[in-house]
Simulated scan of single mutants.
Amino acid sequence: MNLFLQDRCLICHELIRPSISWRAMISVEKEHSICTACESKLEKIEGETCHICCRPFIYLDEKFRHGNLCNDCTRWEEDPEWQGFLDKNISLFLYNDFLKEVLAKFKYRGDYALVKVFSELMKDKLIKMEPDLFVPIPLSDERLYERGFNQAKAILLVSGFTPSEIITRIHTEKQSKKSRSERIHLPQVFKLCQDLNLKDKNIVIIDDIYTTGSTLRHAARLLKGAGAAAIQSLTIAR
């Protein structure tokens, strides 16, 4: 532990105060790129959640719950065109106003330094998942040009993992401009980079936000069509 050099929070830019304790002095303190004030504004998803999409049941009216699934996932799984493609999504935090603003700075305003924050938050989960492939949700060429980087790929790289860029996106209007119904009924928005045989592969898809689940299911459907055995996803926000 270094008691004298102090870093600044990558979100609010305030000094990160070191922990002054005997435990901190005799142990290797985990690196932090955000202060405790900003960290406290991140709402961890905890407790009982939907078995597929990770939606917390505590915020869901009982009439919209069907056993271990939420109403949305029940509808996806009852649709023969979509059932069984996405096995499980894990999201770390609720998409509250604070996280919405931080993600906007990261994605749309080019604050690439924030990748360090998200890689620190996601790294432990990535290590535990141990799939055959980590597949970042791709951007279209137009979106990549606008933003300068793919946020999902960046998180994997900074976390020390190799992204498998095996799918590409067919350019469409921004997802954020579409209604829930429009997102769900989109034609396939991805294609395989080449004729791949993914037989029996376990794959984890990486994205920033789970909203309706449409984007992740489109990718999962394509990958399972190429032979993948199991598809999970990991997102920062839900």
Rank of each mutant, 00 (worst) to 15 (best):
N96A: 09
N96Q: 11
N96L: 12
D97G: 14
D97E: 10
D97T: 15
L99T: 06
L99Y: 08
K100R: 11
K100L: 06
E101Y: 09
E101D: 13
V102Y: 00
V102E: 01
L103G: 03
A104S: 13
A104D: 05
K105N: 12
F106C: 14
K107P: 15
R109E: 12
D111T: 10
Y112P: 15
A113Q: 10
F118I: 07
S119G: 03
S119D: 01
E120R: 15
M122H: 01
M122K: 04
K123S: 06
K125M: 09
L126T: 03
L126K: 06
I127A: 04
I127M: 10
K128E: 01
M129G: 01
P131Q: 03
P131G: 04
D132E: 07
D132Q: 12
F134V: 00
V135H: 00
P136V: 01
P136K: 01
P136S: 02
P136R: 02
I137N: 01
L139C: 11
S140V: 11
D141S: 13
Y145S: 09
Y145M: 08
E146P: 12
R147E: 08
G148A: 00
N150G: 02
N150K: 03
Q151E: 00
Q151G: 08
A152G: 10
K153F: 07
A154N: 07
A154H: 03
A154S: 14
I155E: 02
I155V: 11
L156D: 02
V158M: 06
V158G: 01
V158C: 04
V158Q: 09
V158R: 10
S159V: 13
F161Y: 09
P163M: 06
P163N: 03
S164V: 03
S164Q: 10
E165V: 12
I167A: 04
I167C: 03
I167K: 05
R169Y: 00
R169A: 09
R169F: 09
I170S: 06
E173A: 14
K174L: 11
Q175N: 13
Q175H: 11
S176W: 06
K177I: 12
S179K: 09
R180Q: 08
R180C: 08
R180Y: 10
S181C: 11
S181R: 13
S181F: 15
R183M: 03
R183L: 02
R183C: 05
I184N: 05
H185D: 02
Q188R: 14
V189G: 04
V189K: 00
F190I: 08
K191V: 07
L192G: 14
L192P: 15
Q194H: 14
Q194M: 14
Q194D: 12
D195P: 15
L196F: 04
D200M: 13
N202C: 13
N202H: 12
I203E: 01
